[in-house]
Simulated assay, not measured.
Amino acid sequence: MDKTEPFHKIKGLLVDIDGTLYFKGTPILGAIETVSNLRDKGVRLLFFTNTDSKSPRTVLNILQEYGFKINKDEIFTPIIALKEFLTKNPDKKSYLVTTEEVAEEFQEFPQVLGSEIPDFVIIGDFHDNWDVNRLNVAFKYVLKGAKLLGTQGNKYYLDRNGEPVIDTGSFVQMIANTANIIPKIFGKPSKEYFVQALNKLKLTPNEVLVVGDDLESDIQGAINSGIKGVLVKTGKGQFFDSKTTKIKPFKVIKSFSSISDFFK
Rank of each mutant, 00 (worst) to 15 (best):
12 G>I: 08
14 L>G: 06
14 L>P: 11
19 G>Y: 05
27 P>V: 09
29 L>D: 15
34 T>S: 12
35 V>E: 01
35 V>L: 01
37 N>Q: 10
41 K>F: 02
43 V>H: 00
52 D>K: 06
54 K>Q: 11
59 V>S: 02
61 N>P: 00
66 Y>M: 15
70 I>P: 00
74 E>K: 06
76 F>Y: 14
78 P>A: 02
79 I>V: 15
79 I>W: 02
83 K>P: 00
93 K>I: 07
94 S>H: 09
97 V>M: 05
107 Q>R: 13
110 P>M: 01
112 V>M: 01
113 L>Q: 15
113 L>W: 11
116 E>S: 10
117 I>M: 11
122 I>V: 15
123 I>R: 12
131 D>A: 00
132 V>A: 03
140 K>A: 15
145 G>H: 05
151 T>H: 04
154 N>R: 10
155 K>H: 04
155 K>T: 10
157 Y>L: 09
159 D>I: 09
160 R>E: 12
181 I>M: 00
182 I>D: 05
183 P>W: 01
192 E>M: 08
194 F>D: 07
197 A>K: 12
198 L>N: 06
203 L>Y: 02
204 T>F: 10
210 V>G: 05
217 S>A: 15
225 S>H: 11
227 I>K: 08
227 I>W: 11
229 G>V: 09
230 V>N: 07
231 L>Q: 08
246 K>V: 10
249 P>A: 12
256 F>L: 02
260 S>V: 01
264 K>V: 12
